[in-house]
Design a protein around this nucleic acid. Structure first.
Lengths: 110, 110
DNA sequence: TACAATATGTCCTCTTTCGGACATATCTTG
DNA sequence: CAAGATATGTCCGAAAGAGGACATATTGTA
């Protein structure tokens, strides 16, 4: 029953909250674009366009929420992202707002 | 500190998760467009265009997540929305996905 | 040596959304 | 009576985003 809309909802989140998801993933562990794409697609069974992903990552770096270093590991040239303090604060605040909604499902009815 | 981004984040949520917010508000209590607008703007101190709100409500009704009845109370002709079972299920599923993210902030690191 | 996978980027067209205006009707208050 | 609040809707030009292609380089595999 609650599975009915699950895929649609995950797709909705990936589309509309992509920046939040990226911050969340990078916060959990420094990583790079291609891995994020593969990981998200495997974990959630949705498609994540790299034409949307890479610009989003660059945008988050420009905003100062992510930092990147070009590394050459396993013979691969990767752009590894790390979350910044501002990024952590932003994500924390975002989740606290959502948490507030999860806790109090009621809205003031003046 | 966590107040730094709060307004920006609330605006982000209103923009990108408007349909979810509407379902949440209507689920808490049957209500109508104009009241939602005033309520959201007062509660969160952000602007909610009625040019975005009314089409969004109609869209949710077309999807079968909301139902509306035109009422004349207090001498006012209002279109009062009620959440449907499908709407409840959708919202519930949405929040359960977000909840899952709140609980496990870690993502599988193969 | 091809072909697939890894890895990151841009570009173009189409569609959607944004911000704000236009529109209309009723009710309340000064 | 006029102005503001309540209440719901559409429309238009501009901006943003979606889908998918084009582009390039290296590495691993058949």
């Amino acid at each position: 029953m609650s599975e009915t809309y699950k895929k649609e909802i995950v797709q909705h989140i990936i589309r509309n909250l992509l920046d939040i998801q990226l911050l969340r993933i990078v916060q959990a562990q420094p990583t790079w674009g291609y891995k994020i794409k593969k990981q998200v697609e495997a974990d959630f069974n949705v498609k994540l366009r790299h034409g949307a992903l890479y610009p989003a990552l660059n945008s988050l770096e420009q905003k100062g929420f992510l930092e990147s270093k070009k590394q050459k590991k396993d013979g691969r040239a990767r752009k590894v992202y790390t979350i910044t303090e501002n990024g952590k604060t932003y994500l924390q605040t975002y989740y606290s707002v959502l948490q507030g909604q999860l806790e109090s499902r009621n809205i003031k009815s003046n």
